[in-house]
Simulated scan of single mutants.
Amino acid sequence: MKWTTDLLTPDVNPHRQYRMRCTVGEHSARDVRRIVRSYLSLWNMKELADAAELAVTELLANVIRHVPDRRCTVLVLRRPGGLRVEVSDGSPEKPVVRCADSAVEALDAGGRGLALLAAVVDAWGVLPTADGGKTVWFECTATTAPTCT
């Protein structure tokens, strides 16, 4: 995975967000999951780690499968009471939630990532970007109030 980070963006508290620009490969999700888990630990929101890691894995898998150059930006934001993660790419193709309509489709290994995403996060959506691409985002809400660090 090729990446750059701008953790120390001017006028942004580095303990409130993390952004990386990367070209993802088949094993990139592992590194991003570690980063997400580390920030959730720093922010005292460890209970969100499983859902957030699964969700970000699904979004990165969609970049690998559907974005020809595999370039994306991952933004991890600490929000009051939870977490927001955004994955932006240059592809205008909107993601589609697929459901198995038959027993044969139920055995298909792909195409259900967004349904899985929707099942583990509190909210998610897709926004167009100014460059013609899109941002797919999700939010997870903490059950206990995070403490400030």
Score class of each variant (00 low, 15 high):
residue 19 R to C: 12
residue 95 P to D: 03
residue 127 L to I: 03
residue 37 R to P: 05
residue 134 K to H: 14
residue 67 V to G: 01
residue 38 S to L: 13
residue 6 D to C: 09
residue 59 L to F: 01
residue 45 M to S: 11
residue 140 C to G: 00
residue 18 Y to C: 14
residue 137 W to G: 14
residue 72 C to Y: 06
residue 42 L to R: 11
residue 15 H to C: 06
residue 15 H to E: 15
residue 91 S to N: 09
residue 60 L to I: 11
residue 90 G to V: 09
residue 54 L to D: 01
residue 6 D to R: 10
residue 85 V to Q: 08
residue 66 H to E: 05
residue 127 L to D: 12
residue 74 V to N: 12
residue 61 A to G: 12
residue 51 A to R: 10
residue 119 A to G: 07
residue 84 R to Y: 09
residue 52 A to L: 05
residue 113 G to K: 03
residue 9 T to C: 04
residue 116 L to T: 06
residue 56 V to R: 14
residue 128 P to Q: 07
residue 4 T to C: 00
residue 106 A to S: 11
residue 113 G to H: 05
residue 64 I to W: 06
residue 90 G to L: 10
residue 30 R to T: 09
residue 69 D to V: 12
residue 22 C to R: 04
residue 65 R to P: 05
residue 56 V to T: 15
residue 42 L to K: 07
residue 22 C to W: 06
residue 42 L to Q: 08
residue 112 R to P: 10
residue 27 H to R: 15
residue 80 P to M: 10
residue 115 A to S: 15
residue 85 V to C: 14
residue 14 P to Y: 08
residue 95 P to V: 07
residue 100 A to N: 13
residue 56 V to I: 15
residue 100 A to Y: 12
residue 63 V to C: 14
residue 32 V to N: 09
residue 75 L to F: 09
residue 55 A to F: 00
residue 146 P to D: 03
residue 122 D to I: 00
residue 118 A to D: 14
residue 136 V to A: 03
residue 13 N to M: 13
residue 20 M to E: 14
residue 141 T to I: 12
residue 146 P to Y: 11
residue 20 M to R: 04
